[in-house]
């Protein structure tokens, strides 16, 4: 029978990353005895948050050297925890910090790794479902080799409910950080291109397509008006901004389209696949935003002038055939009036 380790770092404040409880749900699906491995500056709060998770043991690597997300120290800590746990399956949330080290840890353990995991099943041995080709093909597969490190995509599982219970005893592993790294983490930096428009916690993702820069009813492109409308919605609805590739590419080519837009906003094939409860696509006509870009958006609506848009059809819940400029003008006015 497989034994499983839920492996996660702590947040900067010592708490548990949101995605870790989702990964716990996946770890439970393995069906075997569960251990927890935590690393960070201090694991007390995170361990407490997992009290009642049903873990047989909680292991930790702790100390200031393990505070910052960094390959050398994180990979050493994660490997030590996995080794000490003796687990055959290691489940971790796909945070940027775990994604940085998961494959390296698997290599150090002499095991295997799979990323973009969305489902774990234990019928007849552990099998996983994962994405290939950038969320366009999914496969269910098994591996013989162990340990098997699984990086679970955020949003794939609901956060596990952890029954209140006594904090388990945390076993702290002694691990020296000497010689593990030549990297110093200096801090965080927000992009310098004007307003921060990426808000992972927003309820609404607003996806802007290249139609925003095309000619409008007036016969001319109206980039300033488009910019005001988009920013207006982001502010009034507290929405996060996604963009089609063609729109950010225009911005990247020296055509100053929208001051606030960078490649970080891009959703779809070469961009991100954000997760929000709702998504509204405007002026998008193409595969990427509709098919790949909002695969993890629960409720989806689109505003588009083309009723035959084969990409919104079957992909959105509602397609409004209307002029997005006119609609968004009114939406912004209504939202402003509400406040």
């Amino acid at each position: 029978m497989d034994t499983v380790l839920l492996l996660t770092h702590t947040e900067a404040d010592g708490g548990l990353p949101r995605a870790a409880l989702e990964a716990l749900s996946a770890a439970r699906a393995v069906g075997g005895p569960l251990a927890v491995g935590l690393f960070g500056a201090s694991v007390e709060r995170a361990a407490a948050a997992l009290a009642g998770a049903g873990a047989t043991k909680v292991l930790a690597v702790e100390g200031p050297a393990f505070d910052d997300p960094r390959y050398g120290t994180d990979a050493a800590a994660a490997t030590a925890l996995a080794k000490a746990s003796g687990a055959t399956v290691v489940v971790a949330p796909a945070t940027s910090r775990m994604a940085r080290v998961a494959a390296g840890v698997a290599q150090r353990l002499g095991g295997r790794v799979d990323t973009h995991v969305t489902q774990v099943a234990s019928d007849g041995g552990v099998a996983i479902t994962r994405w290939f080709y950038k969320q366009r093909i999914e496969a269910k597969l098994r591996r013989e080799e162990r340990p098997w490190v699984l990086l679970v995509d955020p949003g794939a599982y609901p956060a596990a409910t952890v029954e209140g219970g006594a904090s388990p005893v945390v076993e702290r592993l002694a691990l020296s950080a000497d010689g593990l790294t030549r990297t110093k983490v200096l801090g965080l930096r927000a992009p310098s291109s004007g307003e921060q428009t990426i808000r992972p916690d927003a309820k609404l993702l607003f996806v802007a397509g290249a139609g925003w820069t095309k000619k409008q009813a007036s016969g001319k492109p109206e980039p300033e008006r488009a910019e005001q409308l988009i920013l207006g919605l982001l502010r009034s609805a507290g929405a996060s901004l996604g963009s089609s590739k063609s729109l950010v590419d225009q911005a990247g080519e020296g055509q100053k389209v929208f001051e606030f837009m960078t490649h970080l906003n891009q959703v779809g094939q070469t961009g991100s696949t954000p997760r929000h409860p709702k998504g509204l696509a405007t002026c998008c006509h193409g595969e990427e935003p509709h098919v790949v870009g909002w695969r993890f958006i629960r409720e989806r609506r689109a505003v588009n002038l083309d009723a035959g848009c084969g990409w919104a059809r079957g992909k959105a819940d509602v397609l409004y055939v209307a002029d997005a400029f006119a609609v968004m003008e009114k939406v912004n006015a209504l939202l402003a009036a509400k406040r």
Binding site: D306, C309, G310, W311
Partner: peptide, 25 residues
């Protein structure tokens, strides 16, 4: 009678059938 398979709008033919692109610059 658009069926989304063979009979598609002209714009969708660009995307589904031709994948029409133009590099910027």
């Amino acid at each position: 009678p658009l069926d989304g398979k063979l009979l598609v709008s002209q714009q969708d033919a660009l995307l589904m059938g031709g994948k029409v692109q133009a590099p910027p610059g």
